[in-house]
Design a protein around this nucleic acid. Structure first.
Lengths: 304, 304
DNA sequence: TTGTAAGCGTTATCAT
DNA sequence: ATGATAACGCTTACAA
Protein backbone atom coordinates (compact mmCIF):
# COMPACT_ATOMS: atom_id res chain seq x y z
CA UNK A 1 0.00 0.00 0.00
CA UNK A 2 2.63 2.44 1.09
CA UNK A 3 4.81 1.36 -1.79
CA UNK A 4 1.94 1.92 -4.19
CA UNK A 5 1.36 5.36 -2.77
CA UNK A 6 5.02 6.17 -3.21
CA UNK A 7 4.91 5.04 -6.81
CA UNK A 8 2.00 7.35 -7.31
CA UNK A 9 4.08 10.20 -6.00
CA UNK A 10 2.21 10.65 -2.79
CA UNK A 11 3.83 12.94 -0.23
CA UNK A 12 2.22 13.36 3.17
CA UNK A 13 1.07 16.86 3.93
CA UNK A 14 3.22 17.93 6.84
CA UNK A 15 1.07 20.99 7.40
CA UNK A 16 -2.02 18.94 8.10
CA UNK A 17 0.05 16.68 10.28
CA UNK A 18 1.53 19.59 12.23
CA UNK A 19 -1.92 21.00 12.67
CA UNK A 20 -2.83 17.86 14.55
CA UNK A 21 -0.01 18.56 16.94
CA UNK A 22 2.20 15.74 15.76
CA UNK A 23 5.63 15.96 14.26
CA UNK A 24 8.67 17.88 15.43
CA UNK A 25 8.28 21.61 15.61
CA UNK A 26 10.70 23.87 13.78
CA UNK A 27 13.29 26.22 15.23
CA UNK A 28 13.81 29.82 14.15
CA UNK A 29 17.01 31.81 14.38
CA UNK A 30 16.31 35.54 14.53
CA UNK A 31 19.10 38.10 14.37
CA UNK A 32 19.53 41.67 13.23
CA UNK A 33 21.85 40.72 10.42
CA UNK A 34 23.42 37.60 9.07
CA UNK A 35 26.82 38.96 8.26
CA UNK A 36 30.14 37.84 9.58
CA UNK A 37 31.18 34.62 11.20
CA UNK A 38 29.63 35.71 14.46
CA UNK A 39 26.12 34.89 13.41
CA UNK A 40 27.00 32.37 10.76
CA UNK A 41 28.86 30.25 13.29
CA UNK A 42 26.05 30.29 15.81
CA UNK A 43 23.47 29.62 13.13
CA UNK A 44 25.46 26.76 11.64
CA UNK A 45 25.96 25.10 15.02
CA UNK A 46 22.31 25.39 15.96
CA UNK A 47 21.17 24.31 12.53
CA UNK A 48 23.25 21.18 12.72
CA UNK A 49 21.70 19.80 15.86
CA UNK A 50 18.21 20.93 14.90
CA UNK A 51 18.32 19.37 11.45
CA UNK A 52 19.82 16.20 12.86
CA UNK A 53 16.75 15.90 15.03
CA UNK A 54 14.56 15.99 11.95
CA UNK A 55 13.33 19.52 12.45
CA UNK A 56 13.41 22.44 10.07
CA UNK A 57 15.57 25.43 10.86
CA UNK A 58 14.49 28.93 9.85
CA UNK A 59 16.73 31.89 9.44
CA UNK A 60 15.24 35.35 9.86
CA UNK A 61 16.85 38.76 9.95
CA UNK A 62 15.37 42.02 11.19
CA UNK A 63 18.00 44.45 9.94
CA UNK A 64 17.60 46.23 13.22
CA UNK A 65 14.04 47.17 12.38
CA UNK A 66 11.75 46.79 15.38
CA UNK A 67 8.67 46.71 13.17
CA UNK A 68 10.07 43.84 11.26
CA UNK A 69 11.15 42.06 14.39
CA UNK A 70 7.61 42.18 15.73
CA UNK A 71 6.14 41.05 12.44
CA UNK A 72 8.61 38.22 12.36
CA UNK A 73 7.79 37.02 15.86
CA UNK A 74 4.11 37.20 14.98
CA UNK A 75 4.69 35.24 11.80
CA UNK A 76 6.70 32.64 13.67
CA UNK A 77 3.96 32.29 16.25
CA UNK A 78 1.43 31.84 13.49
CA UNK A 79 3.50 29.08 11.98
CA UNK A 80 3.60 27.44 15.40
CA UNK A 81 7.36 27.26 15.43
CA UNK A 82 8.63 25.30 18.43
CA UNK A 83 11.49 27.55 19.48
CA UNK A 84 12.62 31.05 18.65
CA UNK A 85 16.26 31.93 19.11
CA UNK A 86 16.71 35.67 19.50
CA UNK A 87 20.34 36.20 18.72
CA UNK A 88 22.92 38.91 19.13
CA UNK A 89 23.24 42.34 20.61
CA UNK A 90 20.00 43.80 21.98
CA UNK A 91 18.79 47.34 22.44
CA UNK A 92 19.17 48.12 26.12
CA UNK A 93 16.25 50.44 26.80
CA UNK A 94 13.62 49.38 29.29
CA UNK A 95 10.97 49.61 26.64
CA UNK A 96 13.00 47.22 24.54
CA UNK A 97 13.26 44.76 27.39
CA UNK A 98 9.53 44.91 27.82
CA UNK A 99 9.03 44.26 24.17
CA UNK A 100 11.15 41.14 24.38
CA UNK A 101 9.22 40.01 27.43
CA UNK A 102 6.02 40.51 25.48
CA UNK A 103 7.42 38.34 22.71
CA UNK A 104 8.13 35.63 25.23
CA UNK A 105 4.57 35.76 26.56
CA UNK A 106 2.98 35.89 23.16
CA UNK A 107 5.07 32.96 21.99
CA UNK A 108 4.41 30.97 25.13
CA UNK A 109 0.72 31.29 24.43
CA UNK A 110 1.12 29.15 21.33
CA UNK A 111 3.54 26.80 23.03
CA UNK A 112 6.79 28.14 21.63
CA UNK A 113 9.77 28.87 23.79
CA UNK A 114 12.04 31.88 23.44
CA UNK A 115 15.77 31.59 23.99
CA UNK A 116 18.03 34.63 24.12
CA UNK A 117 21.45 33.95 22.60
CA UNK A 118 24.52 36.11 22.87
CA UNK A 119 22.57 38.60 24.90
CA UNK A 120 21.85 38.88 28.61
CA UNK A 121 18.64 37.78 30.35
CA UNK A 122 15.78 40.22 30.84
CA UNK A 123 15.63 41.74 34.31
CA UNK A 124 13.00 40.13 36.56
CA UNK A 125 12.20 37.51 33.95
CA UNK A 126 14.26 34.50 34.97
CA UNK A 127 11.80 32.34 33.07
CA UNK A 128 13.15 33.59 29.76
CA UNK A 129 16.17 31.44 28.95
CA UNK A 130 19.42 33.14 28.02
CA UNK A 131 22.70 31.80 26.71
CA UNK A 132 25.30 34.51 26.80
CA UNK A 133 29.08 34.60 26.88
CA UNK A 134 31.40 36.63 29.03
CA UNK A 135 31.81 39.86 27.08
CA UNK A 136 33.04 41.86 30.05
CA UNK A 137 35.42 39.17 31.26
CA UNK A 138 36.98 38.94 27.83
CA UNK A 139 37.67 42.62 27.51
CA UNK A 140 38.93 42.98 31.05
CA UNK A 141 41.30 40.07 30.41
CA UNK A 142 42.53 41.90 27.34
CA UNK A 143 43.16 45.03 29.37
CA UNK A 144 44.95 43.02 32.06
CA UNK A 145 47.13 41.49 29.36
CA UNK A 146 48.06 44.91 28.02
CA UNK A 147 48.75 46.23 31.51
CA UNK A 148 51.04 43.29 32.15
CA UNK A 149 52.93 44.26 29.01
CA UNK A 150 53.51 47.70 30.47
CA UNK A 151 50.76 49.65 28.73
CA UNK A 152 49.19 52.41 30.78
CA UNK A 153 47.49 54.58 28.22
CA UNK A 154 44.90 52.25 26.69
CA UNK A 155 42.23 53.51 24.32
CA UNK A 156 38.86 51.86 23.79
CA UNK A 157 37.57 51.77 20.23
CA UNK A 158 33.91 51.18 19.56
CA UNK A 159 30.48 52.28 20.70
CA UNK A 160 29.93 52.17 24.43
CA UNK A 161 26.20 52.42 24.82
CA UNK A 162 22.81 51.56 23.37
CA UNK A 163 23.25 47.88 22.71
CA UNK A 164 23.92 45.05 25.12
CA UNK A 165 27.12 43.87 23.49
CA UNK A 166 28.58 47.36 23.46
CA UNK A 167 27.69 48.03 27.05
CA UNK A 168 28.96 44.70 28.31
CA UNK A 169 32.28 44.95 26.50
CA UNK A 170 32.78 48.53 27.53
CA UNK A 171 32.06 47.52 31.10
CA UNK A 172 34.86 44.98 30.74
CA UNK A 173 37.20 47.77 29.71
CA UNK A 174 36.29 49.82 32.78
CA UNK A 175 36.62 46.76 34.98
CA UNK A 176 40.05 46.02 33.58
CA UNK A 177 41.17 49.57 34.16
CA UNK A 178 39.84 49.51 37.71
CA UNK A 179 41.56 46.25 38.48
CA UNK A 180 44.85 47.75 37.33
CA UNK A 181 44.32 50.96 39.24
CA UNK A 182 44.32 53.01 36.05
CA UNK A 183 41.90 55.92 36.17
CA UNK A 184 39.29 55.95 33.44
CA UNK A 185 39.70 58.78 30.96
CA UNK A 186 36.91 59.33 28.50
CA UNK A 187 39.35 61.27 26.40
CA UNK A 188 40.73 58.02 25.02
CA UNK A 189 37.36 56.67 23.97
CA UNK A 190 36.95 56.36 20.24
CA UNK A 191 33.22 56.08 19.71
CA UNK A 192 32.72 54.50 16.33
CA UNK A 193 30.38 52.05 14.71
CA UNK A 194 31.34 48.45 14.06
CA UNK A 195 32.98 48.85 10.67
CA UNK A 196 36.63 48.67 9.57
CA UNK A 197 36.51 51.76 7.39
CA UNK A 198 34.74 53.86 9.99
CA UNK A 199 37.22 52.69 12.59
CA UNK A 200 40.14 53.49 10.32
CA UNK A 201 39.11 57.08 9.80
CA UNK A 202 38.16 57.58 13.43
CA UNK A 203 41.58 56.39 14.51
CA UNK A 204 43.24 58.58 11.91
CA UNK A 205 41.54 61.58 13.48
CA UNK A 206 42.25 60.41 16.99
CA UNK A 207 45.97 59.71 16.69
CA UNK A 208 47.40 63.23 16.35
CA UNK A 209 45.63 64.32 19.54
CA UNK A 210 46.79 61.35 21.57
CA UNK A 211 50.37 60.39 20.81
CA UNK A 212 50.71 58.92 24.29
CA UNK A 213 48.24 56.10 23.68
CA UNK A 214 50.09 52.81 23.13
CA UNK A 215 47.30 50.28 23.06
CA UNK A 216 43.87 49.93 21.49
CA UNK A 217 41.17 47.68 22.84
CA UNK A 218 38.52 47.22 20.18
CA UNK A 219 34.85 46.29 20.34
CA UNK A 220 35.31 43.70 17.60
CA UNK A 221 37.91 42.25 15.27
CA UNK A 222 36.31 44.28 12.53
CA UNK A 223 37.10 47.46 14.36
CA UNK A 224 40.58 46.19 15.23
CA UNK A 225 41.34 45.58 11.56
CA UNK A 226 40.35 49.12 10.68
CA UNK A 227 42.40 50.44 13.58
CA UNK A 228 45.43 48.43 12.54
CA UNK A 229 45.13 49.66 8.98
CA UNK A 230 45.01 53.25 10.16
CA UNK A 231 47.88 52.82 12.60
CA UNK A 232 50.11 51.44 9.89
CA UNK A 233 49.07 54.23 7.55
CA UNK A 234 50.20 56.70 10.21
CA UNK A 235 53.65 55.16 10.09
CA UNK A 236 53.37 53.15 13.29
CA UNK A 237 54.73 49.65 13.35
CA UNK A 238 52.65 46.93 14.96
CA UNK A 239 53.23 45.73 17.59
CA UNK A 240 56.42 47.67 18.31
CA UNK A 241 54.78 51.08 18.41
CA UNK A 242 51.22 50.15 19.29
CA UNK A 243 49.29 47.11 20.44
CA UNK A 244 45.83 46.20 19.18
CA UNK A 245 43.36 43.67 20.50
CA UNK A 246 40.06 42.64 18.99
CA UNK A 247 37.06 40.57 20.02
CA UNK A 248 35.33 37.57 18.39
CA UNK A 249 38.30 35.65 16.97
CA UNK A 250 37.02 35.87 13.44
CA UNK A 251 38.53 33.36 11.03
CA UNK A 252 41.56 34.72 9.20
CA UNK A 253 42.59 37.20 11.89
CA UNK A 254 45.28 34.70 12.81
CA UNK A 255 46.63 35.14 9.28
CA UNK A 256 46.85 38.91 9.36
CA UNK A 257 50.21 40.60 9.81
CA UNK A 258 50.66 40.86 12.67
CA UNK A 259 48.32 38.10 13.78
CA UNK A 260 45.58 39.67 15.86
CA UNK A 261 45.34 39.19 19.59
CA UNK A 262 41.67 38.78 20.31
CA UNK A 263 39.04 37.33 22.58
CA UNK A 264 37.66 34.04 21.35
CA UNK A 265 33.90 33.97 21.79
CA UNK A 266 32.21 30.56 22.00
CA UNK A 267 29.81 31.06 19.11
CA UNK A 268 29.71 27.43 18.22
CA UNK A 269 28.98 26.44 21.80
CA UNK A 270 26.19 29.00 22.10
CA UNK A 271 24.53 27.76 18.91
CA UNK A 272 25.04 24.16 19.85
CA UNK A 273 23.50 24.55 23.29
CA UNK A 274 20.62 26.59 21.92
CA UNK A 275 19.94 23.87 19.38
CA UNK A 276 20.02 21.17 22.02
CA UNK A 277 17.58 23.03 24.23
CA UNK A 278 15.34 23.59 21.23
CA UNK A 279 15.14 19.88 20.55
CA UNK A 280 14.25 19.14 24.13
CA UNK A 281 17.31 19.12 26.38
CA UNK A 282 16.21 20.40 29.77
CA UNK A 283 17.51 23.82 30.66
CA UNK A 284 16.44 26.35 33.22
CA UNK A 285 17.36 29.98 33.54
CA UNK A 286 20.54 31.40 32.11
CA UNK A 287 24.12 30.59 31.47
CA UNK A 288 27.19 32.68 30.68
CA UNK A 289 29.80 30.77 28.73
CA UNK A 290 33.48 31.55 29.23
CA UNK A 291 35.60 33.27 26.62
CA UNK A 292 39.32 32.98 26.04
CA UNK A 293 41.92 35.61 25.35
CA UNK A 294 44.03 34.49 22.39
CA UNK A 295 47.37 36.22 22.56
CA UNK A 296 48.98 36.65 19.17
CA UNK A 297 51.45 39.05 17.63
CA UNK A 298 49.47 42.28 17.60
CA UNK A 299 50.15 42.90 21.27
CA UNK A 300 53.62 43.39 22.67
CA UNK A 301 55.52 45.29 25.34
CA UNK A 302 54.70 48.95 25.57
CA UNK A 303 57.21 51.12 23.69
CA UNK A 304 60.00 53.04 25.48
CA UNK B 1 -13.71 42.05 17.06
CA UNK B 2 -10.17 41.70 15.82
CA UNK B 3 -8.99 43.96 18.61
CA UNK B 4 -10.82 41.86 21.16
CA UNK B 5 -9.29 38.73 19.75
CA UNK B 6 -5.87 40.29 20.01
CA UNK B 7 -6.47 41.20 23.64
CA UNK B 8 -7.35 37.62 24.27
CA UNK B 9 -4.05 36.57 22.83
CA UNK B 10 -5.42 34.99 19.73
CA UNK B 11 -2.91 34.07 17.07
CA UNK B 12 -4.11 32.69 13.75
CA UNK B 13 -2.91 29.22 12.94
CA UNK B 14 -0.74 29.64 9.90
CA UNK B 15 -0.58 25.91 9.39
CA UNK B 16 -4.31 25.64 8.87
CA UNK B 17 -4.15 28.65 6.62
CA UNK B 18 -1.30 27.25 4.55
CA UNK B 19 -3.17 24.01 4.25
CA UNK B 20 -5.88 25.87 2.42
CA UNK B 21 -3.30 26.97 -0.09
CA UNK B 22 -3.29 30.58 1.01
CA UNK B 23 -0.39 32.56 2.32
CA UNK B 24 3.10 32.86 0.97
CA UNK B 25 5.08 29.67 0.77
CA UNK B 26 8.46 29.40 2.43
CA UNK B 27 11.86 29.12 0.80
CA UNK B 28 14.55 26.64 1.78
CA UNK B 29 18.29 27.04 1.33
CA UNK B 30 20.03 23.68 1.15
CA UNK B 31 23.82 23.40 1.13
CA UNK B 32 26.43 20.89 2.19
CA UNK B 33 27.80 23.14 4.88
CA UNK B 34 27.15 26.59 6.16
CA UNK B 35 30.70 27.62 6.77
CA UNK B 36 32.54 30.53 5.29
CA UNK B 37 31.29 33.69 3.66
CA UNK B 38 30.58 31.80 0.48
CA UNK B 39 27.37 30.29 1.74
CA UNK B 40 26.64 32.87 4.38
CA UNK B 41 26.65 35.64 1.80
CA UNK B 42 24.34 33.82 -0.57
CA UNK B 43 22.04 32.80 2.26
CA UNK B 44 21.92 36.30 3.70
CA UNK B 45 21.10 37.83 0.33
CA UNK B 46 18.37 35.33 -0.41
CA UNK B 47 16.99 35.54 3.12
CA UNK B 48 16.68 39.28 2.85
CA UNK B 49 14.44 39.35 -0.16
CA UNK B 50 12.45 36.33 0.95
CA UNK B 51 11.77 37.69 4.43
CA UNK B 52 10.90 41.07 3.01
CA UNK B 53 8.20 39.38 1.00
CA UNK B 54 6.70 38.00 4.20
CA UNK B 55 7.91 34.48 3.70
CA UNK B 56 9.89 32.28 6.01
CA UNK B 57 13.40 31.25 5.05
CA UNK B 58 14.76 27.85 6.04
CA UNK B 59 18.38 26.90 6.28
CA UNK B 60 19.33 23.26 5.88
CA UNK B 61 22.70 21.57 5.65
CA UNK B 62 23.48 18.08 4.44
CA UNK B 63 27.12 17.82 5.52
CA UNK B 64 27.73 16.10 2.24
CA UNK B 65 25.56 13.19 3.25
CA UNK B 66 23.37 12.01 0.39
CA UNK B 67 21.02 10.21 2.79
CA UNK B 68 20.46 13.37 4.64
CA UNK B 69 20.02 15.37 1.49
CA UNK B 70 17.24 13.06 0.35
CA UNK B 71 15.57 13.10 3.74
CA UNK B 72 15.75 16.87 3.73
CA UNK B 73 14.18 17.21 0.29
CA UNK B 74 11.44 14.82 1.37
CA UNK B 75 10.85 16.79 4.54
CA UNK B 76 10.73 20.04 2.61
CA UNK B 77 8.23 18.57 0.18
CA UNK B 78 6.08 17.41 3.09
CA UNK B 79 6.10 20.90 4.52
CA UNK B 80 5.00 22.19 1.13
CA UNK B 81 7.85 24.66 0.90
CA UNK B 82 7.48 26.92 -2.13
CA UNK B 83 11.05 26.88 -3.37
CA UNK B 84 14.14 24.83 -2.67
CA UNK B 85 17.52 26.39 -3.36
CA UNK B 86 20.16 23.72 -3.83
CA UNK B 87 23.38 25.57 -3.25
CA UNK B 88 27.06 25.04 -3.87
CA UNK B 89 29.36 22.53 -5.43
CA UNK B 90 27.66 19.35 -6.63
CA UNK B 91 28.88 15.82 -7.07
CA UNK B 92 29.47 15.34 -10.77
CA UNK B 93 28.57 11.70 -11.33
CA UNK B 94 25.72 10.85 -13.66
CA UNK B 95 23.93 9.09 -10.84
CA UNK B 96 24.15 12.26 -8.83
CA UNK B 97 22.67 14.29 -11.66
CA UNK B 98 19.82 11.83 -11.89
CA UNK B 99 19.22 12.12 -8.18
CA UNK B 100 18.94 15.89 -8.46
CA UNK B 101 16.57 15.52 -11.40
CA UNK B 102 14.47 13.18 -9.27
CA UNK B 103 14.37 15.82 -6.55
CA UNK B 104 13.11 18.34 -9.06
CA UNK B 105 10.33 16.00 -10.19
CA UNK B 106 9.34 14.99 -6.72
CA UNK B 107 9.22 18.61 -5.60
CA UNK B 108 7.32 19.70 -8.68
CA UNK B 109 4.64 17.18 -7.78
CA UNK B 110 3.78 19.21 -4.68
CA UNK B 111 4.17 22.52 -6.47
CA UNK B 112 7.67 23.28 -5.27
CA UNK B 113 10.28 24.68 -7.62
CA UNK B 114 13.94 23.73 -7.44
CA UNK B 115 16.66 26.27 -8.19
CA UNK B 116 20.29 25.27 -8.49
CA UNK B 117 22.64 27.95 -7.15
CA UNK B 118 26.38 28.15 -7.64
CA UNK B 119 26.28 24.94 -9.59
CA UNK B 120 25.69 24.20 -13.26
CA UNK B 121 22.41 23.03 -14.79
CA UNK B 122 21.65 19.35 -15.18
CA UNK B 123 22.29 17.96 -18.65
CA UNK B 124 19.11 17.56 -20.72
CA UNK B 125 17.01 19.18 -18.03
CA UNK B 126 16.69 22.80 -19.09
CA UNK B 127 13.53 23.01 -17.02
CA UNK B 128 15.54 22.94 -13.82
CA UNK B 129 16.62 26.50 -13.16
CA UNK B 130 20.26 27.22 -12.44
CA UNK B 131 22.07 30.33 -11.28
CA UNK B 132 25.78 29.81 -11.55
CA UNK B 133 28.77 32.08 -11.86
CA UNK B 134 31.73 31.89 -14.18
CA UNK B 135 34.15 29.65 -12.33
CA UNK B 136 36.19 28.79 -15.39
CA UNK B 137 36.32 32.34 -16.68
CA UNK B 138 37.59 33.58 -13.34
CA UNK B 139 40.43 31.13 -13.15
CA UNK B 140 41.43 31.58 -16.77
CA UNK B 141 41.51 35.34 -16.21
CA UNK B 142 43.79 34.73 -13.23
CA UNK B 143 46.10 32.64 -15.37
CA UNK B 144 46.09 35.28 -18.11
CA UNK B 145 47.00 37.89 -15.52
CA UNK B 146 49.94 35.81 -14.30
CA UNK B 147 51.09 35.15 -17.84
CA UNK B 148 51.01 38.87 -18.55
CA UNK B 149 53.27 39.34 -15.53
CA UNK B 150 55.77 37.00 -17.09
CA UNK B 151 54.95 33.79 -15.26
CA UNK B 152 55.32 30.60 -17.26
CA UNK B 153 55.50 27.89 -14.65
CA UNK B 154 52.11 28.13 -12.93
CA UNK B 155 50.93 25.53 -10.44
CA UNK B 156 47.32 24.71 -9.68
CA UNK B 157 46.47 24.07 -6.05
CA UNK B 158 43.25 22.26 -5.16
CA UNK B 159 41.21 19.23 -6.11
CA UNK B 160 40.49 18.90 -9.81
CA UNK B 161 37.70 16.39 -9.97
CA UNK B 162 34.61 14.96 -8.32
CA UNK B 163 32.70 18.16 -7.60
CA UNK B 164 31.32 20.73 -10.00
CA UNK B 165 33.19 23.68 -8.53
CA UNK B 166 36.50 21.86 -8.66
CA UNK B 167 36.00 20.70 -12.20
CA UNK B 168 34.87 24.06 -13.47
CA UNK B 169 37.70 25.98 -11.88
CA UNK B 170 40.28 23.46 -13.00
CA UNK B 171 38.89 23.73 -16.48
CA UNK B 172 39.52 27.46 -16.25
CA UNK B 173 43.14 26.75 -15.43
CA UNK B 174 43.52 24.55 -18.47
CA UNK B 175 41.74 27.10 -20.62
CA UNK B 176 44.04 29.85 -19.40
CA UNK B 177 47.10 27.77 -20.12
CA UNK B 178 45.83 26.90 -23.58
CA UNK B 179 45.09 30.53 -24.39
CA UNK B 180 48.67 31.41 -23.46
CA UNK B 181 50.12 28.53 -25.39
CA UNK B 182 51.59 27.01 -22.26
CA UNK B 183 51.50 23.21 -22.30
CA UNK B 184 49.63 21.61 -19.43
CA UNK B 185 51.86 19.70 -17.05
CA UNK B 186 50.16 17.58 -14.43
CA UNK B 187 53.40 17.62 -12.52
CA UNK B 188 52.54 21.06 -11.15
CA UNK B 189 49.13 20.01 -9.88
CA UNK B 190 48.83 20.08 -6.11
CA UNK B 191 45.76 18.00 -5.38
CA UNK B 192 44.59 18.98 -1.94
CA UNK B 193 41.30 19.49 -0.13
CA UNK B 194 39.87 22.90 0.53
CA UNK B 195 41.59 23.69 3.82
CA UNK B 196 44.39 26.11 4.70
CA UNK B 197 46.33 23.65 6.84
CA UNK B 198 46.11 20.87 4.29
CA UNK B 199 47.17 23.28 1.57
CA UNK B 200 50.09 24.51 3.66
CA UNK B 201 51.54 21.06 4.17
CA UNK B 202 50.90 20.03 0.58
CA UNK B 203 52.78 23.07 -0.68
CA UNK B 204 55.59 22.43 1.81
CA UNK B 205 56.04 19.00 0.27
CA UNK B 206 55.67 20.29 -3.27
CA UNK B 207 58.15 23.16 -3.16
CA UNK B 208 61.47 21.31 -2.96
CA UNK B 209 60.61 19.28 -6.07
CA UNK B 210 59.54 22.30 -8.11
CA UNK B 211 61.80 25.29 -7.54
CA UNK B 212 60.93 26.59 -10.99
CA UNK B 213 57.28 27.27 -10.18
CA UNK B 214 56.72 30.99 -9.68
CA UNK B 215 52.96 31.25 -9.38
CA UNK B 216 50.14 29.39 -7.64
CA UNK B 217 46.55 29.46 -8.79
CA UNK B 218 44.37 28.22 -5.96
CA UNK B 219 40.91 26.65 -5.91
CA UNK B 220 39.81 29.03 -3.15
CA UNK B 221 41.08 31.83 -0.93
CA UNK B 222 41.24 29.27 1.84
CA UNK B 223 43.74 27.26 -0.10
CA UNK B 224 45.60 30.39 -1.12
CA UNK B 225 46.02 31.42 2.50
CA UNK B 226 47.52 28.06 3.37
CA UNK B 227 49.75 28.25 0.34
CA UNK B 228 50.93 31.72 1.25
CA UNK B 229 51.68 30.64 4.78
CA UNK B 230 53.74 27.74 3.53
CA UNK B 231 55.58 29.81 0.94
CA UNK B 232 56.61 32.33 3.55
CA UNK B 233 57.67 29.56 5.90
CA UNK B 234 59.95 28.28 3.12
CA UNK B 235 61.68 31.63 3.08
CA UNK B 236 60.05 32.98 -0.06
CA UNK B 237 58.91 36.55 -0.13
CA UNK B 238 55.49 37.35 -1.57
CA UNK B 239 55.05 38.60 -4.20
CA UNK B 240 58.71 39.07 -5.16
CA UNK B 241 59.55 35.37 -5.19
CA UNK B 242 56.15 33.87 -5.83
CA UNK B 243 52.69 35.01 -6.83
CA UNK B 244 49.49 33.58 -5.37
CA UNK B 245 45.92 33.98 -6.50
CA UNK B 246 42.78 32.77 -4.78
CA UNK B 247 39.09 32.50 -5.60
CA UNK B 248 35.97 33.82 -3.81
CA UNK B 249 37.17 37.20 -2.53
CA UNK B 250 36.50 36.30 1.06
CA UNK B 251 36.25 39.25 3.44
CA UNK B 252 39.57 40.10 5.05
CA UNK B 253 41.76 38.74 2.27
CA UNK B 254 42.26 42.36 1.27
CA UNK B 255 43.76 42.92 4.71
CA UNK B 256 46.26 40.11 4.53
CA UNK B 257 49.92 40.86 3.88
CA UNK B 258 50.27 40.89 0.98
CA UNK B 259 46.67 41.58 0.06
CA UNK B 260 45.42 38.60 -1.91
CA UNK B 261 44.73 38.76 -5.61
CA UNK B 262 41.56 36.77 -6.11
CA UNK B 263 38.47 36.23 -8.21
CA UNK B 264 35.44 37.96 -6.83
CA UNK B 265 32.43 35.67 -7.04
CA UNK B 266 28.98 37.28 -7.09
CA UNK B 267 27.58 35.46 -4.08
CA UNK B 268 25.30 38.28 -3.13
CA UNK B 269 23.92 38.51 -6.63
CA UNK B 270 23.30 34.77 -6.83
CA UNK B 271 21.43 34.79 -3.52
CA UNK B 272 19.54 37.91 -4.42
CA UNK B 273 18.39 36.58 -7.78
CA UNK B 274 17.46 33.22 -6.28
CA UNK B 275 15.39 35.00 -3.67
CA UNK B 276 13.63 37.10 -6.26
CA UNK B 277 12.76 34.09 -8.38
CA UNK B 278 11.51 32.33 -5.25
CA UNK B 279 9.10 35.15 -4.51
CA UNK B 280 7.73 35.12 -8.02
CA UNK B 281 10.01 36.96 -10.43
CA UNK B 282 9.75 35.19 -13.76
CA UNK B 283 12.83 33.30 -14.80
CA UNK B 284 13.44 30.60 -17.32
CA UNK B 285 16.39 28.33 -17.78
CA UNK B 286 19.83 29.19 -16.56
CA UNK B 287 22.16 32.07 -16.11
CA UNK B 288 25.90 32.35 -15.53
CA UNK B 289 26.86 35.50 -13.69
CA UNK B 290 30.19 37.15 -14.42
CA UNK B 291 33.05 37.17 -11.96
CA UNK B 292 35.81 39.73 -11.59
CA UNK B 293 39.52 39.32 -11.10
CA UNK B 294 40.61 41.56 -8.24
CA UNK B 295 44.29 42.29 -8.62
CA UNK B 296 46.01 43.00 -5.33
CA UNK B 297 49.52 42.71 -3.97
CA UNK B 298 49.99 38.94 -3.91
CA UNK B 299 50.69 38.82 -7.63
CA UNK B 300 53.63 40.58 -9.22
CA UNK B 301 56.14 40.21 -12.04
CA UNK B 302 57.76 36.85 -12.31
CA UNK B 303 61.17 36.71 -10.61
CA UNK B 304 64.53 36.88 -12.50
C1' DT C 1 -23.64 42.65 6.54
C1' DT C 2 -23.71 38.41 9.21
C1' DG C 3 -24.08 33.58 9.64
C1' DT C 4 -23.81 28.66 8.45
C1' DA C 5 -21.98 24.70 6.12
C1' DA C 6 -18.56 22.31 3.52
C1' DG C 7 -13.94 21.05 2.68
C1' DC C 8 -8.68 20.82 3.19
C1' DG C 9 -5.39 16.20 4.74
C1' DT C 10 -4.19 14.51 8.60
C1' DT C 11 -4.62 11.82 13.27
C1' DA C 12 -7.37 9.72 16.78
C1' DT C 13 -11.38 7.45 18.32
C1' DC C 14 -14.75 4.37 18.15
C1' DA C 15 -17.30 0.84 16.07
C1' DT C 16 -17.35 -3.20 13.16
C1' DA D 1 -7.35 -6.07 11.85
C1' DT D 2 -9.98 -2.87 9.02
C1' DG D 3 -13.22 0.91 8.30
C1' DA D 4 -16.00 4.82 9.17
C1' DT D 5 -16.12 9.34 11.57
C1' DA D 6 -14.98 13.30 14.42
C1' DA D 7 -11.82 16.84 15.20
C1' DC D 8 -7.98 20.23 14.21
C1' DG D 9 -8.49 25.69 12.54
C1' DC D 10 -8.81 27.75 8.78
C1' DT D 11 -11.03 29.58 3.99
C1' DT D 12 -14.49 29.75 0.67
C1' DA D 13 -19.12 29.54 -0.93
C1' DC D 14 -23.55 30.12 -0.35
C1' DA D 15 -27.67 31.35 2.37
C1' DA D 16 -30.21 34.37 5.32
Amino acid sequence: MIAAANELGYVVNGLARSMMGVGRRSVAFVSAVMVGPTFATMAAAAERVVTEDGRLFMLCTTHGDVERESALIESLAEQRVGTVLLVGSALTGQADEQRIAAYADSLARVGTQLILCGRPPIAHRPDIASIDYDHAGGVSAAVAHLVALGHRRIAYVGATTGMSTEEQRFRGYRLGLDAAGIPFDEDVLVDVENDPDAAASAIAAFLPQHPDVTAFVCLTDHVAIGAGRSLRAAGLKLPEDASVVGFDDTPLVADLTPALTTVHAPFREVGDLAGRIAIGEPFNGSVVLPVELIVRASTDRAPR
